[in-house]
Amino acid sequence: MPSTCAAHIDDHWRELQQQRELAWDLDAISDRSEALAFLRRFENCLCIYSAYAQKLYSSYSFVIPQTDHGDITILPDEQAWQATYNEIPPQAVEPAGVHILPGETLGYSGLYLKVPSENRLVASRELPFHKGLKLLIQRFQARGEAFLPVLIKEDLRGFEGRMPSLHLHRIVPARLGPRAQPDIGAMQEAIAEHLLGLFRRA
């Protein structure tokens, strides 16, 4: 990975760890329109992976049907071809066990992360978004890995029919095929920039 690219990624992670606050004033979400409004807050703030296409999209838009039924679809930005990463095999993407949810579902305000314990016998914890993300970044750095969270395109089907929460997956760079190797640095930087976008839009 070029040193300039690695430096940019390190800068993004450092800035993420220095963030102190994320205050989204969300109302309690109880119907489809509110669930979709919750989802729209993440548009272009998290990269989206398609197992079918084996692609990772970092620039896209949500297409939501006007009727009360129908799948949410992802429309990649065709003008930003460099924002799509190809040849990402399904085995390189795994569930992170982490959920993003509105604090109102827990009796709080703002955005929360449900973070699994490293000890399987200990229950998951619900933490304010910035604290949970900092914990995850530090946890993975201690293992010599990067935390590269993404949404799975297929998970968005029927999203509005469930309690609004988003299950995060993660890219595992060690499982990427040889064709993806030149793009790893750029992909890591794109994911880090998207996470920073969540904080900056707060």
Score class of each variant (00 low, 15 high):
Ser3Tyr: 06
Thr4Pro: 07
Ala7Lys: 11
Ile9Arg: 06
Asp11Ala: 13
Gln18Val: 12
Gln19Val: 01
Leu22Gly: 07
Trp24His: 05
Ile29Trp: 05
Ser33Gln: 10
Arg40Asp: 01
Arg41His: 08
Asn44Leu: 04
Asn44Ile: 01
Tyr49Val: 02
Ser50Tyr: 04
Ala53Phe: 12
Ser58Val: 05
Val63Ala: 10
Pro65Leu: 05
Pro65Cys: 01
Pro65Ile: 02
Gln66Asn: 06
Thr67Trp: 07
His69Cys: 04
Asp71Cys: 03
Thr73Val: 09
Ile74Gln: 02
Leu75Asp: 14
Ile88Val: 14
Glu94Leu: 11
Pro95Gly: 03
Ala96Glu: 14
Val98His: 06
Gly103Thr: 04
Glu104Ile: 06
Glu104Tyr: 07
Thr105Cys: 07
Leu106Asn: 06
Tyr108Pro: 00
Tyr112Arg: 02
Leu113Val: 02
Val115Trp: 04
Leu121Gly: 08
Ala123Phe: 13
Ser124Asn: 12
Glu126Leu: 00
Leu127Gly: 00
His130Cys: 01
Gln138His: 13
Pro149Arg: 05
Pro149Asn: 05
Val150Glu: 03
Lys153Phe: 03
Leu156Glu: 02
Ala174Tyr: 09
Arg175His: 15
Leu176Ser: 05
Ala180Cys: 11
Gln181Tyr: 13
Pro182Thr: 15
Met187Glu: 13
Glu189Asp: 15
Ala190Arg: 03
Ile191Tyr: 05
Glu193Thr: 07
